[in-house]
Every structure is written in C-alpha cells, then in structure tokens.
C-alpha cells in the first residue's frame, strides 16, 4: 500500500528548534531509505506559493499562502507499507512531528496509462 506522509510545520516551533533537528532529519532519511521509502521533497515556504481557481469563466489568482493556518504544508515523503499502522509508526519517528503535525494519507492507486 502506498502512503503519502505530509509534513505540516508550525513556523514558531520550527524557528525555536535546536540545530540538531537537521541531523535528526538526516538519520530519519537514511532509515526511511533503508526501509524502501523515497527521499522526501521539500517545498519553498507556503508564503511563496500561488493559487488559481476558475469559476463561471472567471479566473482568480492568489498569492500564497493558500490557507491561513498555524501550520503550513512543507513537504512530503512516499512510502510503500503493509498498513496504516506502519505509516503512523514512521510519522511518529519523523522529526517534524515535534514541530508541527505529520499526516499520513493512503494513495488511491490508478492504473498506469
């Protein structure tokens, strides 16, 4: 089963994080890679994003962040695991769980074209 692990960061908590966080992240990445997960993808801060929506022929463009919330989506990992329990285990190991929320979502399999 494919899972997406979404990282949501609280800017205030992250700003106060010790420098060891990035070492913890390197270890987490290595452990995940060893277990067959992909390396993560980090995004530029939500404030540097844009958004678009089209309704009744009108196109609206916004400058980020898409959502005004305390925690902002910051990046993700993909993992192939037997069940959501294992996914939650990995989320609990993820250093970002201490500086925001780590969410796991099962992927909807689509057949290759």
């Amino acid at each position: 089963m494919q899972f997406m692990m979404l990282i949501h960061h609280d800017d205030d908590l992250l700003a106060a994080a010790p420098p060891s966080l990035w070492g913890d992240y390197a270890a987490f990445n290595q452990a995940l890679a060893k277990a067959g997960g992909t390396s993560g993808l980090r995004l530029e801060h939500a404030s540097k994003g844009r958004a678009v929506t089209q309704r009744n022929g009108t196109t609206e463009l916004f400058d980020g962040p898409y959502m005004e919330s305390k925690e902002q989506f910051a990046g993700y990992f993909m993992m192939d695991l037997p069940d959501i329990e294992q996914a939650v285990q990995w989320a609990a190991r993820c250093p970002s769980a201490q500086y925001g929320t780590v969410e796991v979502r099962p992927i909807w399999p689509t057949r290759p074209q």
Partner: peptide, 15 residues
C-alpha cells in the same frame, strides 16, 4: 498521485 479521502488519514504530533 491521487489520495484516498481524508477519512482514511491519520495525524501524529509530539509535544
């Protein structure tokens, strides 16, 4: 990727 609905999601935080 398409995700399964949010009802199937779980979230973890450590404080």
């Amino acid at each position: 990727e398409r995700l399964r609905p949010t009802a199937d999601a779980a979230s973890v935080r450590i404080r």
